[in-house]
Amino acid sequence: MSSTDEGNAPSTQAVRRTPGAVRTPAASLLFPSLAFYTALLAIPFLGLVVMGFLTTSQSGLFKAEFTLSNYVKVLLDSFYISIIWTTLRLSIETTALCLLFGYPVAFWLAEQSPRTRKIVILFLLFPLLLSTVIRIYGWIVVLGRSGLINQLLVSSGFVDKPVAFLYHETTVLLGMATILIPYAIVNITNTLITIDPALKEAGAIHGASPWRVFISVTLPLSRPGILSAMLIVFSVSMSTYLISLLLGGPRVKLLGNVVFDATSSFNWPLGAALAVVLVILTMISCSAAITVLSTDKQRGRQ
């Protein structure tokens, strides 16, 4: 990826200036964070990968015997395949919903005065200060069997008995989208406000109607914001655990939930294999999105 190349550019210059010196001052500055991530992320993740190859034990957490059965099970068992598929589908749907409803809000926000924008973003981020559990319980209060909507429906005579809103995929989707949409809005807004207004004027004066200015100028230039919104919303969606647990119950299980089920039933190797598959799936999806949407392709072209 050329963004990595760009990141290295200053350090290669430093090398040229001081040949033979300690590799680069810039690289050495990276050391603390690199050490941190190696110790607390890379090594544990490697442990996870290895754990996935160990054998399930009836008496302990695992048996130190090599086996492929965990990964084979995760990738071939129809139960796990359907869960992987549901997780992927729900994450894609959540991302699509967040972009679809978040972009217009971001577009509106970007046109506001900095003051209004600050206040609205503060309100948007305010729910993030609350625990996700509390926000999900909010949805349960609204959608539950004796919740707000059901009380209204029953008392107004629309339905005879309460509608089971909870424990449906759509409900989980609704929960995920509403909780994650602020990330999409903030990311897209931040890109939209960096677009020089003169570019839109240049589009308009040379013959583009407001709609075509949006299609030909604003939308392509907001691509970095769309991309970062997608990556954040999608990655967080993929590892959803609480939302699907509380709104999906036993009916809607996502990868995060089965990882929990496996580990809490002391089947660590299976849980590890599931977690590794989850991480790899997320990585593949994100890098696919980056390849398709990144503007770096153009930058690299001379």
Binding site: D196, A198, L199, E201, A202, G203, I205, H206, V217, P220, L221, R223, T295, Q298
Partner: peptide
């Protein structure tokens, strides 16, 4: 039906 040159050119970077 106007053509315009802006102070900072306003060329489309993409």
């Amino acid at each position: 039906e106007i053509g315009m040159v802006f102070q900072n050119y306003a060329l489309f970077p993409h």
